[in-house]
C-alpha cells in the first residue's frame, strides 16, 4: 500500500466507532477497498431470529465507501458523505462475519461516486448494496489521536 493509503486505513480503523465495532480493513487501493467485520452479540437487531441490525451493514458500507472516496485522489482527501443509498437484500446472520468491497465508478474534482457490496457466505450472494456520493474537501489531513 502507498503511504497515504496506509494512513487513511489506519485513521479509519482507529475511529472510536470503528474500534467499538472491530472493523478491519483488509485492502485499500486507490479507488477500491475491502473490509471485514467479525460478529458481536451487540450487533443483534432482531433477538427472536438473531439477525444483525440493518444499521451494521449501513455502517460498514458507509465507512468503506467513505474510505474508498478518500483514496481516489492522489495523496488522499477528506470527504463528506452527501448521500448514501442502501439496498438491504437479505437479513444479516448474527453469527457470521460481514465482508464488504467498494469501488469508485466515477470522480471529478468535487465529487466521488462509490458503489459497495456486503456479503456473509460468498461474494456472489450479497446481503446489502450501497451507492454513495462524497464531496471532496481538499487535502487529506491527519486526524489527531484521541488521548489514551
Amino acid at each position: 500500500m502507498q503511504d497515504y493509503l496506509t494512513e487513511i486505513a489506519t485513521i479509519i480503523v482507529d475511529l472510536p466507532h470503528c474500534k467499538r465495532l472491530g472493523l478491519k480493513i483488509t485492502r485499500l487501493d486507490q479507488g477500491s477497498g475491502a473490509m471485514e467485520l467479525p460478529p458481536q452479540a451487540d450487533f443483534i437487531g432482531n433477538t427472536k431470529r438473531q439477525f444483525m441490525h440493518s444499521a451494521i451493514a449501513t455502517t460498514l458500507l458507509d465507512t468503506l465507501c467513505g474510505g474508498v472516496a478518500s483514496s481516489v485522489y492522489d495523496g488522499g482527501r477528506t470527504v463528506a458523505t452527501l448521500d448514501l443509498r442502501i439496498d438491504h437484500l437479505t437479513p444479516l446472520d448474527g453469527s457470521k462475519p460481514l465482508f464488504a468491497e467498494a469501488e469508485c465508478f466515477h470522480r471529478n474534482e468535487d465529487v466521488a461516486y462509490i458503489q459497495g457490496w456486503a456479503w456473509q457466505d460468498t461474494p456472489d450472494k450479497p446481503v446489502a448494496k450501497a451507492t454513495g456520493t462524497f464531496m471532496t474537501n481538499g487535502k487529506f489531513q491527519l486526524q489527531p489521536k484521541a488521548p489514551s
Binding site: P16, S54, T59, Q141
Partner: peptide, 24 residues
C-alpha cells in the same frame, strides 16, 4: 456517546450511526 464518534477532527457522530438512528 463517545463510542459513536466517526470523525475526530470535528468530533462528529459516525454517519453509519446517524443512519442507524434513522433506520431505527
Amino acid at each position: 456517546h463517545p463510542d459513536n464518534i466517526g470523525n475526530e477532527v470535528i468530533g462528529a457522530i459516525h454517519g453509519g450511526v446517524v443512519g442507524g438512528l434513522l433506520e431505527h
